[in-house]
Computed example of a mutant assay.
Amino acid sequence: MPPRLRLIATLSLSQILGWGTTFDMPGVFGRMIAAELSMANETAFAGLTVMMLVTAFAGPTTGRLVERLGAARVLACGSALFGLGLLLMAAATGPILYFAAWLVIGFGSAFGLSVPCYAAVVEREGPDAKRAIGILMIFTGLSATVCWPLLSLGQDWFGWRWTLAVSALIHIGALVPLHLFGLPAIRGATAEATAASQEEPLAFSPAQAKRALLLIAIVSIAFNLVTTGIAPSLIELITQAGATPELALQLGALRSVFGISARAIDTVAGRRASPLFTGYAAAILMLAALPILAFSGGEPWLLLAFVACYGFGSGVSALSRALLPLGFFSPGRYARISANLSLPANLAMAAAPVVSTFLLDRGGATALLVYCAGLCLITLAALAGLSLIRRQVR
């Protein structure tokens, strides 16, 4: 198998299962676990907050470990921690062990998702990493589409506890060795490759570089608040809009299909579509989705239109978040800048599920939609600021 194909295939599988059995999992099991452990729904979803808080504060450590040990070993450690955390959750009888499980999963997320995954690509692809990351994200967006039906099937057959236990064994028994032995070797650096990786796409002044980093951080934060806020509650949100539980599950699973399609289109047009254009498209699509849901009246075709707009928008927003640093800074600085951005971005991901669940349960769908509309407008303003800086430099 060609090295690039093996790289993308290995990381795609690990990211699908990594996201699907952890961050996406409460979308299917969250309210079941809350009922069985006698917790409020927002308390159960606060496990995602614990996960993302740990991920955020472990970010700088992750960067140092990747530099010292290489991304493959860090990813293997992440899979082992995922397995341990899921086993703890399967055994939970109350909030203490439940949140201890999310604490372990949080470290697994820091070592097994996103930053070390993209660092593994940059290690092996260098200046060509942008396109490889785009292709990888096409497949990793399948996490909910693949895992939600499988988790639901596991619940029907075995219950949520045994389903989590089986997921843990997959992480430990399959993904740990896959990361250690399945990734292609890192190619030796050449003088030309090293020079290309250090070439800056824009001649920033120090002040402009700081403003660009700040605005990229705002884009990442706002996108994370919208996408990771809505995603775990998407089925409930569609149900409150008038869908049956079966239709809500089907539409919720389609969200990732639309996201994958959007990423594929963006990747194919990658030489013409900049990360800034991708960001504008994502924000506009998600903003357009909100009134469609608000005025859907439970009509299936309008609910489908909402999921399509939201799915397309959330799909390309992930590409924009990952690739914006490469659009403004050199590939050689990508890992360091991504590590710096991961702290505020992951803090936003930590807060998003609890805030969104609270708004949905206490204020209904309207409160959540107004909140998300405000975040989309903030994103558009930050992207406009980045466009202005780009024009000033050029």
Rank of each mutant, 00 (worst) to 15 (best):
F328C: 01
P177N: 05
G385W: 06
S296T: 08
V355P: 02
F181T: 05
G229D: 01
G259Y: 12
F277C: 10
E200N: 09
T267N: 12
Y334R: 11
F82C: 02
N41Q: 13
A365S: 15
A110P: 09
A185S: 10
T62G: 14
I260E: 12
A209I: 05
L81Q: 03
M32N: 14
G18D: 08
A381N: 02
V307F: 00
A345S: 01
T227P: 10
L113H: 09
G297S: 02
L326M: 14
L7H: 03
P184F: 04
G106V: 01
M286Q: 06
A209R: 12
I216Y: 09
A46F: 13
A367N: 04
A34Y: 00
L213A: 06
S14G: 15
M25N: 15
G279N: 08
F82W: 01
P60T: 05
L276W: 04
S342L: 11
G364F: 11
A132I: 06
T49W: 10
P26Y: 08
R211T: 08
L214V: 04
R333F: 03
A384T: 14
C309S: 05
T190Q: 10
S317W: 00
A129V: 08
A248T: 02
L142M: 09
S233Q: 14
G279H: 07
G364Y: 13
F29L: 15
F139L: 05
D361R: 12
F99Y: 15
R161E: 10
E236R: 03
L183G: 01
F99H: 07
C376Q: 10
L383T: 07
V121H: 05
T194F: 14
E42Q: 15
G173I: 03
L169W: 12
L254Q: 12
C372F: 05
S296G: 00
A283I: 06
V166W: 13
G159A: 09
V355D: 03
A294W: 12
M1Y: 08
R321Y: 13
S261Y: 13
A322G: 12
A352I: 01
S220W: 13
V393C: 04
L326Q: 05
I284V: 13
P116N: 10
L225C: 07
T194I: 15
T55H: 06
A119H: 02
P184C: 09
L169M: 15
L136C: 04
A58C: 03
A305D: 00
E42C: 07
A365L: 10
L5Y: 13
S14M: 14
I8R: 02
D266C: 14
G298E: 01
T21V: 12
R391F: 01
I135W: 14
G270V: 13
A345K: 00
G313Q: 03
R161N: 11
P2Q: 07
V354H: 00
P116V: 04
G27S: 04
G229T: 04
G270T: 12
A90C: 08
L150P: 08
A289K: 00
I135D: 07
T163K: 09
I138D: 07
F158N: 08
G126S: 12
A209S: 13
G30W: 02
G126E: 11
T190N: 02
V268A: 15
P275I: 11
P232M: 02
H171W: 05
V166M: 12
C376I: 02
L202T: 05
T379V: 04
F306C: 06
I230C: 03
M39S: 07
A191P: 05
R64Q: 14
S220R: 10
R391Q: 07
G374K: 05
A46R: 09
S338H: 00
